[in-house]
Computed example of a mutant assay.
Amino acid sequence: MTATERIPISPGRRLYVQLGITVVVLVAGSGVLVAHWATLDSGTDRLAAADGEWLVLACVAAMGTWVCAAVAQQGAVVERLPRGRLVAAQFAAGAANHLLPVGAGATMVNLRFLTRCGLSTRRSATALAVKAVVGGLVRCALGVALLVASPGTVHLSARFPHVLVLLPVAAAVVVITAAISGRLRRTVARAFADVRDVHRCPARACALWGGSVAFTLLHAGVVLAVIHAIGLGLPANRVVMAYLVASGAAALLPTPGGLGSLDAALALALTAAGAPGAQAVTTVLGYRLLTGWLPMAPGLLVLALLARRSAL
């Protein structure tokens, strides 16, 4: 079979593959939970006895993440979006993100919302891609800033300089690939045109980058507030770094809302930062409760309401 006769992988087949990987990760995570059920149970009891004021602060930070996500999404497009529905869409997208793998739930909700606001499908997809890329760049930049400001935050291995060399090499490979492929080159050119249009407006650029920075820091703030609520005094720089590392690692596993992958990565990162295992589990439980489990039901109700009003 020649290259032109190859049958492309259909979106449905890709979805089945992603769902299969999700099932495997969730089954493995369930096995880990069963094996460490005693630790999980003690963590739940410890969370129930935590400082209420710090938990309220963590709850406020969690609610702020939806506003920041809306600000960043507005910054990714030139057109003005309806503010109330935009924030509601981000709240609904967070709930939908816990139902489908690889962020597909949030992507589908936001894509539908942007097209309902009058953007073409291509420009809506570009806006979502720009927001995702900026979010990744922000996490990397914050991690580098922490390493520069606090060199003792993590212990760098001897291979770290090699990683710094590989990053520009990987970027060069992507650029060369885009230059060789005509269709890809045209797609990238249109995407860069949209990015230039956004950055020609200082208000949009500030919203995109500022919202992404605030979104990441508020998520780390939820983790930090839960840690203080259970009486664990870890330095803030270590907690932020632990969240940055965990969220980046969880993005490699396609589970709904990072379920299982983010939990394990965050627990391991907090343990590496100096938290005892039981306290690390308690922190992950509190973070999940405030950012995922409690908003799930109202988020799905908002999703249904937006769909009924033809906003999605």
Rank of each mutant, 00 (worst) to 15 (best):
R186S: 13
A48I: 11
T39N: 06
L167V: 15
V130W: 00
Q90Y: 05
A49W: 13
A273S: 14
L57M: 13
L259T: 15
H199Y: 11
A72W: 01
V71H: 02
T65Q: 06
G299V: 12
G274Y: 05
S120V: 07
A236N: 12
A311C: 04
L218K: 08
T283H: 00
T121K: 03
M108C: 00
I7M: 08
S261A: 15
A132V: 12
P161K: 09
R309E: 15
F91E: 07
S120F: 05
A38Q: 14
T153S: 08
A149F: 03
F113N: 01
G52Y: 09
T255Q: 00
A106I: 10
L119A: 11
S42T: 15
A275E: 01
A311L: 06
V78W: 02
T107V: 07
Y243W: 11
H98M: 11
A127D: 03
L57T: 12
L300Q: 05
V198G: 02
P295A: 02
A307G: 15
C140G: 10
G210W: 04
V34P: 00
R80G: 10
A275W: 01
L184A: 14
V175Y: 08
G248V: 04
S42D: 12
R185D: 10
T22I: 07
T216A: 07
V175W: 11
C117F: 02
R238T: 12
T153K: 01
R85W: 12
L234M: 12
A158H: 11
N97V: 06
V78H: 09
A104P: 00
L289K: 08
L244K: 04
Y287F: 13
A236Y: 13
G29N: 06
I230E: 01
A127E: 10
T115M: 03
P202N: 05
V222F: 02
F113Q: 08
E5I: 02
R14P: 00
P254W: 07
A35G: 08
L15E: 08
L146K: 01
I9W: 11
G12H: 15
S10C: 03
L81W: 04
V144T: 12
V25Y: 01
R190T: 15
G43P: 00
I21F: 09
V27Q: 03
G94T: 12
R238V: 04
L259V: 14
L208T: 10
R200Y: 10
T44L: 11
L306V: 13
L184V: 14
V188E: 03
L47W: 10
A269I: 05
G29I: 05
T271N: 09
L244D: 01
R309P: 00
A132F: 13
P202M: 04
L33R: 04
D45H: 13
Y16Q: 14
G221V: 02
C206S: 13
L232M: 08
L147G: 12
L164W: 08
V77A: 01
A225F: 08
N237D: 15
R309W: 06
A242Y: 07
E5T: 14
L100G: 06
R139E: 07
G64Q: 08
A205C: 07
V245H: 02
V198K: 01
L303I: 09
A236L: 12
D194L: 05
L99M: 13
G299K: 07
N110M: 08
M63Y: 05
